[in-house]
Design a protein around this nucleic acid. Structure first.
Lengths: 111, 111
DNA sequence: TACCGTTATTCCCTGCGAGATATAACGAAA
DNA sequence: TTTCGTTATATCTCGCAGGGAATAACGGTA
C-alpha cells in the first residue's frame, strides 16, 4: 500500500456544460502573456485549431466573453483576456491550489 | 456568472500508474454484491471485457490483489473482493465524499 | 464423462478525436 | 491598394481506444 498518491482534476461547469479546466486555464494565461491565440498555442505546443475551438466554446458558454478577439489590422489582429476571463482564471487557480492541499492532508491522515 | 458548479474527478495512483477511480470503485462494489465479474458487468451495463481488463490491471498494479478470481466449478467460478480491495474502496469513498463537501464550501464562499 | 456458467483471450471493426493542411476574411498601416 | 499576420473555417486522414463476437480453459457436480 505504499507509493500511493491521489490525483485530482477540477473543472467548472455552467448549466452542466464543461467550461473551464486545467488546460484551458493554461491557454488563457498564455493568451494574457502573448496577446494572440496563435502565439499562445505555439508557446504551449498546441495546434491553433485546438486552441481556437477551446476558446470559441468557453466564450460561447460564458455569459460574458472571457476573451475578445480582433481580426485584421497591421499586426494581423490579436486576442485579449477580459476582466471576466481573469476572474475565472483566479477562481479556478485558488480553488485548485486549496483542493490539492486539502487532498494532501487527507492522504497523510489516511495512512 | 450564475449556475456555475465545480466538478472533480479523483483517482489513486501507485508509482504513477492509474490505479483506482470512480468507475473501478463502482465495479468492485458490484463484484462484492454479485460475486462474479460477468454478473457485476451486466448489472452496470459494462462489457465483460472492459470489466476484466480493469480488474486485471488494478490487480497487477496493487501489491496485494484486490479481488480473487476462481475459474471452473459447478457455478462456473466467481470473483471475490479481498480485504485489501474493501479497504481501497472505503479509502476512495471517504476521501471523495470529503472532497466534494470541501469543494461545495469553497464555491459557496467564492461567490 | 457430460454439462454448465464462469473466467480468460484473441481478432475484427468501427466511430471519434486530434492533427495536418489549405484557404478565405479581415483591416490597419505604409 | 498592397502587404502582412492574425482570426476563422472546412476537409481529409490516421491512429487507436473500445465494443462485439467468437472461442478456449477450467473444474465442481450429477
Amino acid at each position: 500500500m505504499n507509493n500511493l498518491t491521489i490525483e485530482n482534476k477540477l473543472w467548472l461547469q455552467k448549466d452542466g456544460q464543461f467550461y473551464l479546466g486545467k488546460g484551458r486555464v493554461e491557454l488563457l494565461q498564455a493568451i494574457v502573456e502573448h496577446g494572440s491565440i496563435s502565439a499562445a498555442a505555439r508557446s504551449m505546443q498546441m495546434s491553433y485549431k485546438k486552441a481556437w475551438t477551446a476558446i470559441d466554446e468557453m466564450n460561447s458558454i460564458s455569459d460574458e466573453p472571457l476573451v475578445v478577439r480582433k481580426t485584421g489590422g497591421s499586426a494581423g489582429g490579436g486576442t485579449f483576456v477580459t476582466e471576466a476571463g481573469k476572474k475565472a482564471i483566479s477562481l479556478y487557480e485558488r480553488i485548485n491550489i486549496r483542493c490539492i492541499a486539502f487532498l494532501d492532508e487527507e492522504m497523510k491522515s489516511a495512512q
